[in-house]
Design a protein around this nucleic acid. Structure first.
Lengths: 220, 220
DNA sequence: AAATATTTTTAGTTTTGTCTAAAAATAAAA
DNA sequence: TTTTATTTTTAGACAAAACTAAAAATATTT
């Protein structure tokens, strides 16, 4: 079965939103993510339910069927492999690739994506630390963790922030914490959950507020 | 200015057809190439004329404006660079890449295509021997010539056929002439314009009917 | 030059995916 | 438990890009 660009974007979005919803994904949530109107979402989910890629109950939200999940995972696989290509081969920065990958993920050829996978050396995570689904549709748990969740001794590189408010980003800048920084947890303070870390070779103290908003991709 | 996928396909097609039309490109010719109806073409060329990328005179056909030519050349540049990528990096065969490149040519990022160009080592021709326009929009003459137009001593590789009728392809197969074959013109017979060629190291005689239908990409 | 054939355009629909405005269902507050 | 607020759906409209059928313009024959 074939899906339009728009349908693919809906399926991908519902897949991502499902991870944060216990029940079905709400119409409003989809609308917000896709920057569209709730009424448009209703139209589309009705169509997708006809195609049996989602389960949709009026006023109750939607969930992907197994069929829909497979389609979504294929798109995510393509997106993440292209991101690796852009960063590893074309030397793009991590923060520059998302928009381009949003387009590349809709290129249809199955053969293309499998050859690209091979060309890239079968990577398991994308530049943001998110896992790349296999050809068979298997997807590992994310290697991306909040800095505050790391144990003493664990290390990795900073791959993103949770809350990207300007104030927070300025603070990070002042402390020389950037995307790409190597970070190792040296010790934890039980009382206030602050951390002592090794940042690119230098010693640094980090409060819980900060460590709760930094994503780390674990080494290895 | 931005163009839809459909508009881009029209501009590209008109560019290609202009090479075979003295006056304006006919509505029917565009319709045939794009496998659509003439009435749809009329609608679209009127829209493109509004956008000043083509000149359109009712019943007289269309020609690209300088603006339209630039857009078309950009798309062709992308198409051909992606073809090089698919063949050189992902080991696709020449006859497998066209369809995929038809999709990739519509990926928008200018930065992407320039980096891809660099990654591929600034190639000047695509796998079919067609020239790749530069970043500035300059496009060289094709290095692809009919075998019958080569002079004695010239050599290259076979990159395509003009008339791809099944009978003809079978004949080529029998003679061991294939896409990728190295061909050198050893001598020409004035009387019937038949050729003596070196085909991958072996001597072969070729009639005018055949040499008029084989495209050669010159070496170097 | 008139008749015929071909090409091109116009007029009116259709499909896809979106929108606005209003109605209906559900959730939250008084 | 009413009332109010929020969410979701329906109904109707619109733009893009295609289509069919018929009319108009151009080309080709006779």
């Amino acid at each position: 079965m074939n899906f339009s660009l728009s349908e693919e974007n809906y399926l991908k979005t519902i897949f991502h939103l499902e991870q944060h919803f216990k029940e079905g994904v709400s119409t409003n949530a989809i609308a917000e993510k896709l920057e569209t109107k709730p009424s448009s979402v209703t139209d589309m989910v009705q169509k997708l339910a006809e195609k049996e890629v989602i389960r949709y109950v009026k006023y109750k939200g939607t969930t992907l069927t197994e069929k829909g999940r497979k389609v979504a995972i294929k798109i995510i696989r393509k997106h993440r492999l292209w991101e690796v290509f852009l960063v590893d081969k074309l030397d793009f920065q991590w923060d520059e690739v998302h928009e381009i990958a949003e387009q590349l993920e809709h290129i249809a050829s199955e053969e293309l994506i499998n050859r690209l996978d091979e060309f890239l050396g079968f990577p398991t995570v994308d530049p943001h630390g998110d896992p790349i689904p296999t050809k068979e549709g298997l997807i590992k748990n994310s290697q991306k963790r909040l800095l505050s969740k790391l144990s003493v001794g664990e290390q990795g590189i900073c791959v993103g922030v949770k809350d990207s408010e300007s104030e927070f980003l300025k603070f990070l800048d002042k402390k020389n914490i950037a995307i790409g920084s190597q970070i190792e947890v040296l010790s934890k303070e039980e009382f206030d959950h602050s951390l002592q870390i090794n940042l690119d070779g230098k010693l640094l103290y980090i409060s819980k507020l900060i460590s709760d908003n930094l994503y780390i991709k674990l080494d290895g």
